[in-house]
Write a protein that binds this DNA or RNA. Structure first.
Lengths: 193, 193
DNA sequence: GTCTATACGACGATAGAC
DNA sequence: GTCTATCGTCGTATAGAC
């Protein structure tokens, strides 16, 4: 954790509204005026707290990356085997998708390069790095078949991630949490030693 | 095939330039002026051939969906087993990613809902429907373990698709085609009976 | 069918009072 | 720190000549 990052109530209000609007209408279809109107904060205030529109998006993105990283680290400490850790990760991702779909939608679906040219794209980000690390350690202990780390990681988590995007796109009716066992059975078979 | 769709050279020129610009800078960062300048076609002509900017994007999207569907159908007829068919699909997707990354990028990464609110999102589209159909038939013949179709499809193709996005994001250095065997080994284990 | 020129609206961002 | 009012720019789309 590089910085603790405590934000005032106004910033929180702005960011929370922004997340809703960005996921509902997209970054480019959301004007700063919209953010002001919906959040009850004036444009002047927004520009006082953030450098510009991209600055708002950037702050939002960083928050979510940090939050996700923290949750993944918690999982890492709570479980010992790669099997249990990776399963817990999928469980977590599915739960977030159900309880805070906006968070998941923003992280996965927003093409950050398009409006955050200076941020690294999602899959190069910290959370994905941690996930690959879990896989790597699983290979070292012999739980996971030895192959290219990238291949193993994408195959282990790729199915779950597509379940998430399908759910967000309305292609899946039931809550993802009811699929955890099924998905995990498939995913683990893909890479287990 | 609902309609043959023959386009004139001007339309082709516009669409081809548009694809390049949309993938390089994104839909919203590309103005119709940009398309005109880069393609050597005047704004007036563009609006003569397409209803509006969204119409250009829509035509592009439909073209690529149709092209992909056609290629998938070809695969379906060229192979008999689900095993061979699905492997061929992954091979095809990897090849397109290497030879025409723009096509893949546009199909997977563009969040169509943001600028094509009236089109169905990628994963509800025809190509994905065909892919699920292949899986379904594999279950019927006993090649693929009987589970939820959605789960099986996402787990079978999810790894490959994430390999593609990782490659497009510059996270993978080597051509995807060199990973086909590895990825397929994992993917097939995930769902094989 | 293709072009140039232009109208018009919207949005990002700032100024400056409180 | 918060607000309102405003400016300047840019981008979509159209008009109308050739």
């Amino acid at each position: 954790m590089p910085t603790p990052k405590v934000l005032g109530p106004t910033q929180e209000q702005i960011l929370s509204t922004t997340l809703t609007l960005f996921t509902r209408k997209g970054y480019f279809n959301t004007s700063v005026h919209d953010i002001g109107r919906e959040s009850g904060v004036s444009i002047g205030s927004i520009y006082h707290h953030f450098k510009d529109k991209e600055g708002v998006a950037s702050a939002l993105y960083k928050r979510m990356i940090e939050r996700m990283s923290a949750e993944l680290e918690t999982i890492k400490h709570a479980h010992k085997s790669a099997h249990d850790r990776c399963r817990a990760v999928i469980q977590l991702l599915f739960e977030i998708t159900e309880t805070e779909p906006e968070v998941m939608e923003f992280m996965l679906y927003a093409k950050h390069k398009e409006f955050l040219p200076n941020e690294t794209p999602v899959c190069s980000s910290e959370p994905f790095r941690i996930m690959r690390e879990l896989v790597k350690e699983g290979m070292d202990t012999g739980e996971i078949r030895t192959t290219d780390i990238m291949v193993a990681s994408t195959c282990l988590f790729g199915g779950a991630i597509r379940m998430i995007t399908s759910r967000l796109d309305g292609l899946i009716e039931k809550p993802l949490t009811s699929y955890v066992d099924d998905v995990w059975a498939c995913s683990w078979k893909a890479v287990a030693a």
